[in-house]
Design a protein around this nucleic acid. Structure first.
Lengths: 343, 343
DNA sequence: GTGAAAGCGCTAACAC
DNA sequence: GTGTTAGCGCTTTCAC
């Protein structure tokens, strides 16, 4: 046994927690061997594996992932950025993302950019500082400075809920323009003529509304009336939106809402006003949230596979983090109009 | 200029990112001085501060918080655990928590334990491994093993949305028993006699329902009928819950629902059945979600200050992380019955 | 006010 | 299959 080195002048006391060194000492192996027993068990003998497992159990050792991440340049942390978590639209995506990542040993960091994108740059800086293995962006990234930064730092990025012509890196989404067109065509096919839109004041909703109005025009219908309400959308917004829509365009016989919550508000307001849905007014939502099928009348809406988006995003990130290149970087996950009673 | 040391045999290539060393070299100071210029600017001269700021701007340096966290034993990461993010109840709390933390330079990690608590231990291990500066628990912690672990690892813990007799550490919540009692008394005061409950199948909802039923008995009312629906609660659950309730106890004249979503389902089902609300049936929700005031009839419900809970939890954690002891570890944030039209 | 040295807890690279 | 060594990028401790 080597003589102990003379005690150094400095002492840094550590956190006091059990470290891999403690485990290794207890198991009678070198730290790196203990590390391998835990991370790549196939590389060590059965005996070592067992001894290390015992030592872990005895000490209650929990690996320090901060240290591991620093050493290996793999943090096993994934950042998700949403405009706000309290519009229920992205919830399903965040939920499935969290779960899919947790299953593979990754953890989710949540950041809210706000619909205005004011905090976006600060948020990105905070995120990049944590050196996540991936970033999932939901909703548009407003600042070009932000784009530049993401590109520069080389962290895998998945944009979701949209299909941009120039993705930063990877993407899983659908075309909001196609949604707008499809809903216009659908309502036209149902014999509706005087179309209206109640849309949240965010970029993607605007695009759906714009495409909807353009398609209506192309179909030879009168100009659609578009009413905007603040984002995130609310039931109240839907009620007020319909009120305004009927004030502006009294003969409206169909409304496309930019969220199911908005549609629920429209449904509510219509009922209060004695307007028959769908007889006098067709209502179409967006999102197909859990409640859409169970409101009365059941809501016709655009179904988006929010959970599938989350899972696919997780898949993308993990593939990259583990050094594999993904074959197809852009996935159009599509959408579907779900016909129920409201329109 | 010193001669370059002979190249060592090993080369570990780093991540290639700009480091504090690069910034320091550019600014012509020692790394530690650059560190101080960024973290404790009061300790350095104006000149140094300026030179370092320039170097940061020129290089696009983003500090590696993994390394910083490892060295300082302060990760500036806070973990939040919720049963699931896709019951809208905790959303407001998670949102305000995220924001309050971001403002102070902390980042939120999100974990979902599931209502059954099956993944709880694995989740806690994953969380502890990241050495967060605090853990916010929303909803009950099921496993006693988990409690032990949290206690052992010494990370500040805030339990929320409940008032447990033996908090792990800090707590900001309210009494579910009091809620149950208060709603029973409220409905009794409104002249309701045949009380019912539609409650989600989770521990806290059960407690509210139990206290509600006990209070009804104490008030001399007939036994309240309690119907349970799966958690997380849904609009559909509310519809089915009311259907079952009316089957079991046809004369019911008031329903206390364990969430506003459930209440919305009850309202919907009542309307479909031609039951007048509130004339024939009073409906009381729980949560006072954004939509409660705007449904028709407007929902009488129990208001919970979800955002305040999140802010207070952030406050607790940050105080502790910065070495201050909090004066009062347990805060009862209370609740209020908001009377609207439905009951 | 500034700096040199040591080390946080872990893993990559190389050797045997 | 196992061990040695040298860092990952930062901050703490001590010294001037």
């Amino acid at each position: 046994m080597a003589a102990e080195p003379a005690p150094t002048r400095r002492a840094r006391r550590g956190s006091g927690a059990v470290t891999l060194h403690d485990v290794a000492r207890l198991a009678g192996v070198a730290p790196i061997t203990a590390s391998r027993a835990l991370n790549t068990p196939a590389q060590v003998s059965d005996e070592v594996r067992q001894k290390v497992a015992d030592a872990v159990a005895r000490t209650g050792y929990v690996p320090n992932r901060l240290a591991g991440g620093l050493a290996s340049a793999r943090s096993r942390l994934v950042a998700a950025v949403v405009p706000t978590i309290s519009g229920p639209v992205f919830l399903e995506t965040v939920q499935s993302l969290t779960e899919a990542l947790a299953e593979r040993g990754y953890q989710l960091m949540l950041g809210q950019s706000g619909y205005a994108g004011s905090r976006e740059d600060a948020l990105l800086e905070a995120i990049i500082g944590r050196r996540p293995d991936g970033i999932v962006l939901t909703g548009i990234l407003h600042s070009t400075e932000g784009r530049r930064r993401l590109l520069a730092c080389g962290i895998p990025v998945v944009e979701t809920w949209d299909l941009t012509p120039t993705p930063i890196d990877m993407l899983v989404g659908f075309s909001h323009v196609e949604v707008g067109r499809a809903v216009a065509a659908y309502l036209h096919g149902k014999g509706r003529r005087r179309l209206g839109v109640v849309a949240g004041d965010d970029e993607r909703a605007r695009r759906r509304a714009g495409a909807f109005a353009a398609a209506a025009r192309a179909l030879g219908l009168p100009d659609a009336t578009v009413v905007h309400v603040p984002a995130p959308t609310t039931l109240k917004g839907g009620r007020e939106g319909l009120a305004e829509l009927l004030r502006t365009a009294p003969g409206t016989d169909a409304v496309f809402c930019s969220s199911d919550l908005l549609a629920l508000g429209v449904l509510t307001e219509a009922r209060v006003r004695g307007l028959q849905v769908p007889a006098q007014l067709a209502v179409v939502g967006f999102g197909d949230l859990e409640f859409a099928a169970d409101v009365e009348p059941a809501l016709t809406t655009v179904h988006i596979k929010g959970a599938a988006i989350g899972r696919q995003a997780a898949q993308f990130i993990v593939e990259r983090a583990e050094g594999r290149e993904v074959a197809e970087r852009v996935i159009d996950i599509g959408f579907a109009i779900v016909e129920r009673q409201s329109g």
